[in-house]
Write a protein that binds this DNA or RNA. Sequence first.
DNA 1: TCCTTTATTTAACGTTCGTTATAATAATAG
DNA 2: CTATTATTATAACGAACGTTAAATAAAGGA
Lengths: 186, 186
Amino acid sequence: MIEKALREQIKEVAVEHFNTNGYHGTTIRNIAKDVNCSLPMIYYYYKNKKELFDEIIKKEYFNLLEKQASLLKIDNIINFYTKFIYDLNSLSNYDKQVYRLGVKVYLSFDGDEELMNHMDEWEKSILPRHCKILKPYMKNVNNEKVVVRTLVHLLETMIINIVVKNRYLPEDEIREEISIVLQNCG
Amino acid sequence: MIEKALREQIKEVAVEHFNTNGYHGTTIRNIAKDVNCSLPMIYYYYKNKKELFDEIIKKEYFNLLEKQASLLKIDNIINFYTKFIYDLNSLSNYDKQVYRLGVKVYLSFDGDEELMNHMDEWEKSILPRHCKILKPYMKNVNNEKVVVRTLVHLLETMIINIVVKNRYLPEDEIREEISIVLQNCG
DNA sequence: TCCTTTATTTAACGTTCGTTATAATAATAG
DNA sequence: CTATTATTATAACGAACGTTAAATAAAGGA
């Protein structure tokens, strides 16, 4: 227990490598070198390169998304979305890299068709979820769906800025932009 | 004349391959096979793999961006931005793939540090340019900078949707979302 | 015509890749 | 103490990679 389980350690290093060099640019040998284990150890814990990559996306990334989506407690709707985005700034390095890798697959910059289908499934759930969250605050708004769509699009860019481009977004900038889109929502 | 044909053909096929498989996933052999020429012909026209990739980004992608940025004629500001985005739908396949590849480098999912610096240079010019375009329409808006920033963020997502995720965005959806952000601009 | 330059191919070099067969070690259980 | 199982390492396989040397073909003046 002093040493982190080797299997986990391999996964962590793999996340870094896939992130920096992409799937094809990542080599099992380099992972092993950084983990400080012999090459076949990676095959001892993972069937092959693809399974290692898949586990990162299917388990780590989607766990992260679900955790992120579940920590809801709403008072003011603008505060809610501001916090939702702002908290991404303080994700652990590992989580940020997993997130980044997930976005990469989501944009089909990496991974394969099978992983893309997982992504599409998730994506379908996004608009309805935010529609539900926002509904109570949309009494005096006529173009409900457009506002939700616009907000989701804006959130996407901010997520990419923080997680993919690894930039810090200050809380007030986030709030300002969200407020522009939600300015008619009480 | 024949020379140019082959050189261009190599570049076109390379764009496809880099797009589909990334830099590391693309092999010179596969490009040659699709071009229907022998392998060393690629080295006859391009010094090496990296130079081929660099030329696509540095020439093709930035040409595209500048062409895109220069076709301005403004009447109504919402019409202007709507058209700006909507026209991306009808880019040629080649241009769309070049654009996609550029975005991939921009998000540092591919390419190297040197190319990223090119991207950063361009990025710095974005906000000022849109500020200038929007300034005349911002008379009765107090939070000018926030509006511009939000708009640029929204545009980015729509660009990614059309060019990276290869989706068709209908004109009215684009107009609706832009209108949300620019609703106080005359 | 011959010669020089351009365009293209065949064949191979050395390297690195993903993956595995095999063996050695450490841990555990009986 | 021994038998068995769980880990780890050494060494190598065949395939594919980026790249180049060398030879050949085509073209175009002189």
